[in-house]
Design a protein around this nucleic acid. Structure first.
Lengths: 194, 194
DNA sequence: TGTACATCAGTGAACGCGCGTTCACTGATGTAC
DNA sequence: TGTACATCAGTGAACGCGCGTTCACTGATGTAC
């Protein structure tokens, strides 16, 4: 385990860069995420980050990958294994909350076509996708899991973006939660009616 | 009506800038949309656009506003006044197609919180929102139009973004269309079951 | 019909900025003997 | 336990770039008389 004993060697600059990048992202949006700014914030020379990241893209990909991991954890924390529409709705609420809590991060995660050069990122996306499918399958055992999970994901993802872009009423967290729950419950009725 | 008779006076630089901005947007993404690049493409000095746009933001807002207008037209063209779920689904398909045809434009329209400094932009957003509500109201007369129209919009918007970000299979237009139709039809079953 | 002049729509040089990235370097660390 | 040395993780100067924006300017246009 590295120790930041001296002032010359940072100790864990890799993690510090990631941390700085995330902070900058939420403060200034993705335009503020420059390697130089990251270095400045980490208290290090402008070129030090190159020890740990090949270029700016590599850093951005690392940030996005961390975001995917956190989103997965966040959803799992909302409910470990949802089996009812109500529990699924709780996971949906967590998804939208994640987007509203870390708007710039969420945009980085979903704002560009999946970068094929970052296998870390591709894998993370696939994991989220599979996770959603698993939940939908458990909640609606009789349904076509692929088709329905896409519909559920799209609905929740769309709610997240519309809130993020100020197109819906996001004045209180309660209003957001209620809306998300209502939308997911509506989808449940579909399945029940079939 | 202005005429571009001489080479000194452009004739309609305002429109030419808008055109150039849209082309650059689709070619290089929003990062490529600089005032200098617009001027270059319009064949004019770097500072000429300032005659017509106060600054870069003003140009971007004008582009977004044009996008909203075109989206509205595009939806109306898909079906002038949908009254059945099938007709509504056609409009949904048109929405997603619009996003996939002009990805960068779509992102500009929805990538930032509605700029409060551009009343043109705010009005355009409100128009789209009202338009969706009207359609949903006509299609599902018995329902709560506000709640349901939000759900419909979110579902379609989410599908558009997931396709845009390469998270779903967008290999053929037919696949996309079928998926969008299926998702909207699913929502209809909800209403019918109540 | 011709001329004077205000107005409009461009030019082009210049500014300061922050960026990504390279390069040769140097200080700190840890390992082999 | 001490020393030599390879390796690692930083530094700082420098590069070229494109950007937004300002400024004083000039060429073209159109209107009043």
């Amino acid at each position: 385990m590295p120790q930041a004993s001296s002032s010359y060697h940072h100790g864990d600059l890799r993690a510090a860069c990631l941390r700085a990048a995330r902070d900058l992202l939420e403060e200034d949006g993705s335009a503020g995420l420059s390697l130089r700014a990251v270095a400045r914030r980490a208290g290090v020379s402008a070129t030090a980050p190159y020890r740990h990241y090949a270029d700016r893209d590599a850093l951005v990909s690392a940030v996005a990958a961390e975001g995917y991991r956190e989103l997965a954890e966040h959803l799992a924390a909302a409910h470990p294994s949802p089996k009812t529409p109500d529990e699924l709705a709780s996971v949906a609420v967590a998804y939208v909350r994640f987007a509203l809590d870390r708007p710039a991060m969420f945009r980085v995660m979903f704002a560009e076509p999946c970068d094929p050069n970052s296998e870390e990122r591709v894998a993370a996306t696939a994991a989220i996708s599979g996770y959603v499918r698993g939940i939908v399958h458990a909640t609606f055992p009789g349904s076509d899991p692929d088709a329905l999970s896409t519909t559920v994901w799209a609905l929740v993802h769309g709610l997240a973006f519309l809130h993020l872009d100020g197109k819906l009423d996001s004045s209180t967290p309660e209003a957001v939660d209620a809306q998300v729950r209502a939308a997911v419950q509506a989808l449940f009725s579909v399945s029940a009616a079939r």
